[in-house]
Design a protein around this nucleic acid. Structure first.
Length: 362
DNA sequence: AAGTCGGGGAT
DNA sequence: ATCCCAGACTT
């Protein structure tokens, strides 16, 4: 707490002008900056949650080609929107986005709300995304506090609170209501984020190139390397998995749809179990019970995969098997598909590796 | 307040 | 290996 400045302790007008001037001269040419269509801004902000700009660009371009407006996306079937999101991660984002877009179509006559109160009720629109859409699409003076903004402001204002805490984010929002430029909130907010991405980076920030260097408390104190403060996260827990590439005599492979909630909800996968608590004999019994596999060819694993999530590590062994018929047990959706039709289904990246290596042979 | 939810790029 | 990314939702 000893470090903290108030935003009123710096030259607010100089900060605004230097930041915005720098932004207009240095902003990247990004596809969602073509215009201010609220739907486009919205889609881009959802995709950009915890996801890098370079990763999002091709997804955004494809998404806009396939779903150019609210109506086309509202009317799309779930398998299509999941396929459009395949590989991007955090798949509840696209499900929530469709729920929210449908609500805008039906409850707001197709116009994205332009007040924080209304837009914040939409599924998937939290404090950051609300501020981003309101400022960028509607030019409203609303803060949009993401990781970049917290890093930049923690340095400028010498804030040493843990930026992982919700209370700290609210502190930044409170300061920004005073600091944000009422004449150009869009450029101000985007400028803060762009500055965080290009100059005020997590390690070795480019202070000598920074447009607000003279306004920065951390640079003045030489503490830019010590801010922001963030608690360490816990390690991912390893889990041993066995996945099965099961074929029939009709040149088809067996896939199943994951549950509608939880990890990788709604995506397709190859049948698999978590190991550890089961012997391999129990596993084969489970294979027969759950998937009706009778002629299971259990030699050695044909592929080993390590796939790292934020909080889990899957160590997957892939086995091959054969089955004539498959009895769908309760609560599971099983499907035989031709190998060339697998591309129509959205798979998690971990199981895309099975398609790439064990089916297509790299 | 802590846990869940993906994947990849930078260091 | 670790961090962290234009975070939100659930418990």
């Amino acid at each position: 707490m000893e470090l903290t400045l108030r935003c009123t302790d710096i030259d607010i007008n100089a900060f605004r002008n230097d930041l915005i001037t720098w932004f207009y001269q240095n902003q990247r040419d990004l596809p969602w900056r073509e215009n201010r269509d609220p739907y486009r801004v919205w889609v881009s902000e959802i995709m950009l949650q915890q996801t890098r700009v370079d990763t999002v660009i091709p997804y955004f371009t494809n998404f806009m080609r396939e779903f150019p407006d609210l109506q086309s996306f509202a009317n799309a079937p779930e398998d299509k929107i999941l396929k459009a999101w395949e590989g991007l991660g955090y798949y509840s984002r696209v499900r929530n986005l469709q729920t929210a877009v449908r609500e805008v179509v039906t409850e707001y006559a197709g116009k994205v709300p332009d007040t924080r109160q209304e837009i914040s009720t939409l599924k998937g629109v939290g404090p950051y995304t609300a501020g981003a859409i309101l400022s960028i699409a509607y030019n409203k003076p609303e803060p949009a506090v993401d990781g970049n903004v917290m890093r930049v402001l923690a340095r400028v204002l010498l804030i040493d609170e843990d930026i992982g805490k919700a209370k700290t984010r609210k502190m930044f929002e409170s300061e920004l209501y005073e600091l944000i430029d009422p004449d150009d909130p869009s450029a101000f907010n985007q400028g803060l984020m762009e500055l965080g991405a290009l100059v005020c980076t997590p390690t070795s920030p480019g202070c000598l190139l920074c447009p607000v260097q003279t306004q920065c408390g951390a640079y003045f104190e030489g503490k830019q390397a010590e801010l922001p403060v963030k608690a360490k996260k816990k390690k991912a827990v390893p889990k041993n998995m066995a996945a099965f590439l099961i074929r029939n005599d009709h040149d088809e492979v067996l896939i199943e749809k994951r549950p509608e909630k939880g990890l990788l909800a709604g995506l397709w996968q190859f049948p698999n179990f978590e190991l550890g608590e089961y012997s391999f004999t129990e596993l084969e019994q489970g294979l027969a019970t759950h998937y009706g596999v009778r002629d299971y060819n259990h030699n050695e694993a044909i592929q080993k995969i390590e796939h790292v999530f934020s909080h889990i590590i899957w160590n997957i062994q892939v086995f091959e098997g054969k089955a004539d018929t498959v009895e769908s047990t309760e609560g599971t959706v099983l499907k035989w598909v031709k190998e060339e039709d697998l591309e129509q289904y959205a798979f998690p990246v971990s199981h895309q590796k099975i398609i790439t290596h064990s089916i297509r042979g790299d």
